[in-house]
Design a binder for these strands. Sequence first.
DNA 1: GGCGCCCTAAACACCG
DNA 2: GCGGTGTTTAGGGCGC
Length: 695
Amino acid sequence: MMVESATESIRTTPSSQNGVSSLSSQSDGGGREGGSNCDTNGEISPVDLLHLQQQQALQAARQFILQQATGLNSPSSNELKQSPVQVPVSMAMMTPQMITPQQMQQILSPPQLQALLQQQQALMLQQLQEYYKKQQEQLHLQLLTQQQQAGKQAKEQQQLGNKQLAFQQQLIQMQQLQQQHILNLQRQGLVNLQPGQGAVPIQSLQQAMCPTDLQQLWKDVACVQSTEEAMKHEGLDLTTNSSNTTSYSASKVSPQIPHHPLPNGQNSVHTPKRDRARLFEWISSFTKESSDEHLMPYSKGAHLQSTHSTHEEHTASHPLFGHGECKWPGCEALCEDMGQFIKHLNSEHALDDRSTAQCRVQMQVVQQLEIQLAKESERLQAMMTHLHMRPSEPKPFNQPLNLASSMSLSKRESEGFPEGLPHPPTSAATPITPMRQGPSVISSSSLHGVGPIRRRNSDKFCTPIASELAQNCEFYKNADVRPPFTYASLIRHAILEAPDRQLTLNEIYNWFTRMFAYFRRNTATWKNAVRHNLSLHKCFVRVENVKGAVWTVDEVEYQKRRPPKMTGSPTLVKNMISGLGFGSLNASYQAALAESSLGLLNSSTLMNSTGASLNMLHVGHDDVSSTVEQVNSNGSCSPGLSPQQYGHQIHVKEEPAEMEEDCRPVSLMAAVNQNLSMPGDERDMEEELPTEELE
DNA sequence: GGCGCCCTAAACACCG
DNA sequence: GCGGTGTTTAGGGCGC
């Protein structure tokens, strides 16, 4: 087919030559397409071949990266971008992204990520095909040119035959690699790819790799290139291309490879082993530095640098000699002793273009690895920092509570702001605050806006809804971000925020849409959820008012359902009574405190604003504008709207099973407070505003 | 794995 | 009949 036609062209057209481009000129991003890197003999220049093979290696690397692409969470990097080889195929994918994979992962839902991955894989496949096409065309073009010039001299006919074979070989290799890579990509799931789908940045995949992955990657690279070698050295059986599965071990059975350079002394066949050798070197260094016990099973280099090696003395004497082999990238020549090695070094690796190029490549390899190391180190540091910070998680949650909430509280009190209402100055100072909330507040699901509400956050360890909304109200108003609170807490907040602490269903709807951009869509869903929550939770009391049915909050019921887990916890009792720092409390309790702080904040504010000193629980209310008590279905007194105030029918709900009980032990906190004769709301304040009210 | 909490969806009833 | 409201049930996800 193509090879045959190329062969035919060779026979019928003269060949020619051209100069060898310098390495620098080839690597300066000019791309390979325009390069005519052939030597005067009409062959592809070694440097060109080097580039070609390195590109192929990178293709294999990319292939491996895709295989490893289960996680995309790693900081962005530009390793590939800085690759010594310009690989047009992947340049688009190597472009640094505006967002990190982590951010992408947070922003995108898993299905979106998957779609993105598939999309980019498709793109990559397409680019691969285009690239190989270009390469083939280029090779073919070079072939034709050389044939034309070579044809003028009959004397060179025989030589041309050899060149022809060489080019045929190149073409075959190119085709084989192309097929192999495409097949591999398809095996990796691209068979189902559809046109137009996107993908995950390849750099992200690479960045996600750990050193072990890199080792495997390099191994694959070496394997692929060894395949090339094998093909080259297996003769010129161009009719079969079944050598795609040539294994690494198979390639290693070709020790003569390094000793068969091209006639002009170039190093095309050296390149694969060179890369592999660099891999080994890197593995060795990494293994040595990171963990002496972890020897890479396939890492020959690791063993080469084993401190237990009998050749260690030699290794120590020369970094390029170890285990009886020359460790020059791609060489692996066997040397019996140091003297022989030195001789070999001086003869085979003297200062010439090839060695310079190899050194240059090695420098870039090292540079890339250093970058990778820096990134990995940074990641490690972040991980350690994160893990170290874990025990003190409550800290960031307490702090904003103290500062923001109390400050805005006082302001609201003085300015008559309804408590809980977002105060402009506060929110204005933090227009995009959710970022500072940390992941505990704005989860990935809430970020992309399609996932479920941050369910546990508000309950466990989030900033209280009051301060959260106060500080981020502008954000939630404008950003299509789902608030990290439950429907129940939001409804409660809305109701308590109302001047008279009551809202009609429609007013609740309006509050949701007014406060959260997220709730301006999917109205059917969340409205249904709101109604569901209102009906389901006992804490929401429907009151027939003159203007229709309104919903109020039964704080007692609400608090009842909050911290069931802390009931009976000796630790909590101790902490409670002793008034220790809340950082020592467990997450559940803190979460309960956090979430419910809003209502208590509200209550306290109202109480303060009205100057009422209430004993809701035992005495009864004396100010309906403040937190009022309400006789609930159980006959107990609870803060909320006064039945007298509304003087209408109150629909008593039954909480779901577990909520049902007066006989159920009251929460420990409540019990403690009751023992302390704490008034209802004050009790709540004490419970829920440890950092706000108990400073 | 069980449990609790939550969300979502859906069906149904009531009422203006 | 329609839309809004309220109730209830079911299923599933998630964290403990």
